[in-house]
Structures are given as C-alpha cells and as structure tokens.
Amino acid sequence: MKRFFAIVLLMVLTALGLTAWRSWAWWSWASAPVDPTDSWANAAETDRVQVEIPQGTPSQQIGQELADAGLIRSTTAWKLWTRWQTFQDDSGGYQAGTYALSPEQPLTAIAAKIWTGDVVELSFTIPEGWNREQIAALLERQGLVSSLAFLAATEQIPTANYPWLPSGLPHLEGFLYPDTYQVPEGEIDTETVIRLMLDRFEQIALPLYQASNQAQNRYSLLQWVTLASIVEREAVVAEERDEIASVFARRLQEGIPLGADPTVEYGLGIEQTPDQPLTLDQVRTPNPYNTYINAGLPPTPIANAGLASLEASLNPAPTEFLYFVARYDGTHVFSRTLTEHELAQATIRDQVELQPVE
C-alpha cells in the first residue's frame, strides 16, 4: 500500500512539475527582456501592423485577433499574462483604440501597450501667425479634416463651452492657439481640432489677460487679441516685437491709423511679396480691415498670435517712435517723425531699385 501511494505521489509531483515548467516556459518566452538592437525596437512604422480594438472587446477576443494577425504566437500565454496583470492591477483593463504593433515585439510589450492605452496618435503643428485659411489648408493636406468643413466650423462660436469668447464674433480667428497637437487616430474631426485649440488658448493665453491689472489694462479681450495678431504678422524679427507693439499702442492712443500692411492683405485676401508688394490702389481700397484708411483696430484679429506677441501686446511700454517701415529682410527702420519716416521709405525704395537683376 505504501508503495502504491508513493507511486501516485510521484506521478502527481511529476504532473505538477511539468505544468509549472510549461507555465514558466510560456512566461519566459513571452516576457523575455527587450534587446534594444532587436529588429522590432527599431522597426520602421511601415513594418508595423495597425490593430483597431473596439470599446468593450473581451480580453480573450483581443488575444485571438492578435494571434490571427500574426502578432502573438500563443493565446494561452496571452491569457496567462492577462490574469497576472489583472491580479497586479484589478482596476485596469485593455483600452480601446488603434495600435501600431510589430510581430517582432514580445507578447508582454504588446499587451502592456494595449493595457496602458498607448494608441496611435496623429500630430499636426500650427505655426504662429497663421490665419484660418492657412490652418484649414494644412489640415486638409495632411488628410485630417476637410478645409471647407473646418472653415465652416470656425464660424460656429461655442460660447456655451467657452463663455469668455467675445460676443458677436463672426469666426474664431485669433483664438485658435498656434501649437503642436496630438490626437488619437480615429478620433479627429473638425470639432475636436477646434476644441483642442480653444482649450490651449484658455490654458495659456487667457490667464495672461485675466492676471493683468484690469485697472491698467487698456484693451478688451478682443482688442488685445486683435492687436497681438497684427504684431505677430509684422514682427518677423523677434527682437523688434516689443517695439512694434509699443508703436501700435501709441498710435492707437493718439488716434493715428496703424497703417499696417498685414491688415490690408487680410482684408483683400492676398499676401504681398518682395516681387509683388502692395500697390497704391490696394492700400486705398476701402474695407473694414484697411488700417491705412480706418483709425483704430480692425473688427477681428487677422491671424492667430503666439505667446510672445500676446505678451508684448498686453501692456506695451512707452516708446519715442511713432513710425516704422519694413526692409525686405524682415527688419524695420523706426522713426520719431513723419519726415524721418518718409526718408527711411525713400532709402529702402532706392536700395530695392538698385538691386541687380538676376
């Protein structure tokens, strides 16, 4: 009888050992440390497979779909990892979304990516000083959203979600904060893009205005953003930004038209170049944005200013200058009097005319 029990015990221990060895083998194979020289770690995006996991997909189904896609070799190892991860983090779970995965990745790396929601993200950058049309064209070029749909959406003013937006805005020009944005793939649409930009304005720009001394602040929110947009378009050289803002502030205070070329360009929907500068007829063409004809600020911003121009325009320092004229290298000549200004204009014009023709 003792011999019989010894044989049974030996068989049980052998079976348990074999099971433990198999589990250890599966785990060791699935969770082998990553060598940074491995091909999967340096794989190009084109070598990766995009997998879409809908909301509410069971973990077992996720494992089967990964196996069917050739991304993992064992659904059993997937189940073991899932049980262990759930034991470690019973409040977590696999996240829905689109993932870029490689068959060269260890099972644990793939599982961890889906557990933490490391989804594919689209990135786009809006440069400082761009207007709505330029932003719309970029988004369409990158295949993110339709240009026409974006422009139409910017004419819907979401004051319910952003009550600080000035009343009566015809569009969101000036409040679409220029920055780099990341959006999970599959979740991008015109409303999402606009919400991201308004959120960023609310987080970065709006506190500047709210924290300024309101008793000394000479501008409404709309006036501030409008002035900053003109400064942004004029200030090609960063070192001149504060002086340009100060000149504009002084001209506004004294009731002198700003005489800013970018406002004329915006009103006419054109962009001048060294080869095709604004003509006298264009400067004399009446429209609400022509700051050669109209004193004060135009009715809306003409672009979306960055932080530096917003800061420079909030409370500009006093200046002795009242005029400036642009050279064609992006810098400006600042003048105290109209006589100095006209002389600077003539000098720059003569220099351009003397340039050799290539």
Rank of each mutant, 00 (worst) to 15 (best):
S335N: 07
R48G: 14
E239M: 06
L258Y: 05
R3C: 04
I72Q: 05
E243C: 01
E265F: 01
Q345P: 01
W224G: 07
D179A: 12
L148R: 14
S309P: 13
R48Q: 15
E353R: 15
T46N: 08
L338R: 14
I135H: 00
S39L: 13
E65A: 09
Y209A: 09
Q60V: 14
T180Y: 12
T319D: 10
W130M: 01
N294I: 07
V12P: 00
R327D: 05
I114K: 01
T190N: 13
Q216R: 15
T263N: 07
Y181K: 05
S74T: 10
Q214L: 13
I194N: 02
S229M: 11
I126Y: 04
Q55F: 09
Q156L: 10
E104D: 15
W130R: 06
R141N: 15
F150R: 02
A67C: 02
D275M: 02
A305K: 01
A326Y: 04
L297K: 04
Q355Y: 02
Y292N: 07
D68W: 00
Q203N: 12
W40G: 00
Q282H: 05
T180L: 11
G56L: 13
S212G: 06
D242M: 03
Q272K: 10
E311P: 00
R195Y: 00
L322D: 02
Q156T: 13
P103D: 10
I230A: 05
P184W: 06
I157K: 11
E173F: 02
I53M: 08
A15Y: 13
Q182A: 10
R251T: 10
E202S: 15
D35W: 13
E340R: 00
A96S: 15
R132A: 13
A44H: 10
A346T: 14
V120W: 00
I114T: 02
R200A: 12
G97A: 02
V225I: 15
L198K: 07
L165I: 03
P316N: 11
V352I: 15
F124H: 11
W81R: 08
W78T: 07
S28C: 00
T337G: 09
K2I: 08
Y94H: 11
V12K: 04
Q88V: 12
I7M: 12
Q355C: 01
L10A: 14
T75R: 08
R22V: 04
E240H: 07
W21K: 07
V225R: 08
R22M: 04
T192Y: 00
T98R: 12
S313R: 01
E191D: 10
N213K: 09
Q214N: 12
V325Y: 04
A6G: 04
L122Q: 07
W81K: 08
G267M: 03
Q142P: 11
E311Y: 01
L165N: 01
L297Q: 06
V231H: 04
W115A: 06
W27C: 03
I188V: 15
E243M: 10
P301N: 09
N42Y: 05
A136C: 04
Y94V: 03
F248E: 05
V247I: 10
L101E: 01
Y99A: 06
